[in-house]
Design a binder for these strands. Structure first.
Length: 569
RNA sequence: CGGGGCGUAGCGCAGUCUGGUAGCGCACCUGGUUUGGGACCAGGUGGUCGUGAGUUCGAAUCCCACCGCCCCGACCA
């Protein structure tokens, strides 16, 4: 490909709307162009990257035995009403009407459609298992789109759905997909981690997220450096303290704490160790009675864990100030377990505390020396907090560490969540009708591009791996328009590489050398050959890998072999 | 939805407080000089100053409403 014929539109300055390095670089390199909030055009250069990612995903899916199809983006409301999600999916579902005022949605995911296909096409255990996938544009009406293609409203996703007679078969395919995903992300050169994830309201028995490690990620991951344990913080288990609760040593005392509303203020005011304090959070339950949740002062309530507890209202809802005053007789800031008649759920850590500092349920007063079983009833105990760095790992092998990640894939055991309401059944060996077991497997194809740049960039621009780069090799001629010698050598090399099937860009634009060199680096093309009269007179050109510090002179006659050897690794 | 910020040429910005002929840099076009790290000189193209309604002799500037974008939070998964 020749640059003059292609389309390169780079910017020196990033548009002000971009915050993340990856977003800025994608705009500067002209990979994408914003149309509206969360809506991006993939420009020719960016589309080449997207297609490279798709190609790797498609290959690995095929290799893993999944079969490609393509379903419509627009889906009839009836199917969603059948599964119950027309009501429950919420505002993220973009609903539209056709000219006959019939309801449709723009598909955010395709469980309903694929299940509809399968229930009509597959009737027998002999046809199972089957695994279908597609690579397609999805739309989710995000509350707050941000970070460019990382959280866009319209995006490209690979979604796969598997159907099975039984759970063992599902697990088998699930494991196959898990491996395929590892292959995809490894081939793309991403630093990633598969982490156990919350199954959320979907239920089921297993779910793993594939997280690209990046400080700018929106997800928090807890992992054990000494084992392969890793989980989303929503799920990561906080173990009970090893030591049993100490005996009560102090008498309970009331202390006046005027205008002390937060734990930080409390610690400062009373000069106590934050680990002696207890934080009170009041949430709504399925009945009218609010429930008191207690976590240690320096810990945070984990909402996903909290709402899984029986009787707690889903989604987790904080009690209103009025309800709190009714139930406790005090305002938030002075709440605690002593004297509260309702349900109390203490985090495992809190359950092992003695001589606690807690709110007195009277405004501007706290209690010190509070002990369960003596000053108030023993609470229910549950794991309701976020793990923190240094917590013992649930695997038993060390301490947890935290890092951030960008979710680029997830695999899910759906079980019969969709098969049952949609009547996706098969006849088994005994002629009995049974619902199919299902799995679903997603990869955020367009998000991968952003995530990869988040991991691969420097002050000069993007650093793509060979697998993702829009072009594998860029030829930068010094004076293409002026020097016949340079032009001939550049043209010849371009044609040779192209004939070998290598994605090569010959930058024949009539620009100064500095512009060409800077653009090649901004675009992140992994291998660069600079051809100039100076070198050609000695029969040499220069090779420089995108990560290399400087250029290496290479014999013109040997440059193709040199490139091939560099590309191999 | 709450809080904050911003909308002036394709991009980055000044001008708004204190109303008086719409500016700068980059990009783009023409000519010339240049040519191994984002050139220089000269001349140009391009803007209903987000939209609408007001105040005023006169509004980018003041008032009101709306729209859009960004950040933080909430919500969602």
């Amino acid at each position: 490909m020749r640059a003059a014929q292609f389309f390169i539109s780079t910017l020196k300055e990033a548009p002000a709307e971009a915050e993340l390095p990856s977003h800025k670089l994608m705009l500067r390199a002209g990979l994408i162009k914003r149309l509206a909030s969360g809506l991006y055009s993939w420009m020719p250069m960016g589309l080449r990257v997207l297609r490279k990612v798709e190609a790797v995903v498609r290959e690995e899916m095929n290799r893993a035995g999944s079969v490609e199809l393509l379903m419509p983006s627009v889906q009839p409301a009836e199917l969603w009403q059948e599964s119950g999600r027309w009501e429950f999916y919420g505002k993220e579902l973009l609903r539209i009407k056709d000219r006959h005022e019939r309801d449709f949605c723009y598909g955010p995911t395709h469980e309903e459609v694929v299940t509809d296909i399968v229930r009509k096409e597959i009737n027998s255990y002999k046809q199972l298992p089957k695994n279908f996938f597609q690579i397609q544009t999805k739309f989710r009406d995000e509350v707050r789109p941000r970070f460019g293609v990382m959280r866009a409203r319209e995006f490209v996703m690979k979604d796969a759905y598997s159907f099975h007679t039984d759970f063992d078969s599902l697990v088998d395919t699930y494991n196959g997909m898990y491996q395929a995903y590892c292959n995809v992300f490894t081939r793309l050169g991403l630093k990633f981690r598969a982490v156990a994830a919350d199954t959320g309201s979907i239920g089921g028995t297993g779910s793993h997220e594939f997280q690209v490690l990046a400080d700018s990620g929106e997800d928090l991951i807890a992992y054990c450096p000494d084992s392969d344990y890793a989980a989303n913080i929503e799920l990561a288990e906080a173990l009970a303290p090893a030591a049993p609760r100490a005996a009560a040593a102090a008498a309970m005392k009331t202390v006046s704490t005027p205008n002390v509303k937060t734990i930080a203020q409390l610690v400062d005011f009373l000069k106590v160790d934050i680990r002696q304090t207890v934080k009170a959070v009041v949430v709504e339950s399925d009945s009218d009675e609010p429930v008191l949740m207690l976590v240690r002062g320096d810990h945070e309530l984990n909402e996903v864990k909290a709402e899984k507890i029986a009787g707690i209202k889903k989604p987790l809802t904080m009690a209103t100030p009025a309800a709190i005053r009714d139930a406790f007789g005090a305002q938030p800031g002075s709440l605690g377990p002593v004297g509260f008649k309702g349900r109390v759920i203490a985090d495992r850590t809190v359950a092992a505390m003695a001589d606690m500092v807690a709110g007195a349920n009277r405004d501007d007063e706290h209690l010190t020396g509070v002990n369960f079983g003596r000053d108030c009833a023993e609470p229910e105990v549950a794991d309701i907090r976020n793990v923190v760095a240094g917590d013992p790992s649930p695997c038993g092998k060390g301490a947890l560490a935290l890092c951030r990640g960008i979710e680029v894939g997830h695999v899910f055991q759906l079980r019969t969540k969709y098969a049952e309401p949609l009547g996706c059944n098969y006849l088994d060996r005994d002629g009995k009708l049974k619902p199919m077991e299902m799995g679903c497997y997603g990869i955020g194809v367009s998000r991968i591009v952003g995530a990869a740049i988040e991991q691969g960039h420097d002050e000069r621009g993007i650093i793509f791996t060979d697998a993702m780069a829009p072009f594998t090799v860029v030829i930068v001629p010094m004076g293409y328009g002026r020097s016949e010698l340079v032009r001939e050598a550049a043209d010849k090399l371009h044609d040779e590489l192209a004939a070998l099937g290598i994605d090569v860009l010959l930058d024949d634009r009539d620009e100064r050398p500095g512009v060409l060199l800077a653009d090649s680096e901004l675009l992140g093309i992994p291998h660069r050959v600079v051809i100039g009269e100076r070198g050609l007179k000695e029969g040499k050109v220069e090779y420089q890998g995108r990560r290399d510090d400087g250029a290496t002179p290479v014999e013109l006659t040997g440059i193709v072999a040199h490139l091939q050897s560099r590309m191999a690794c």
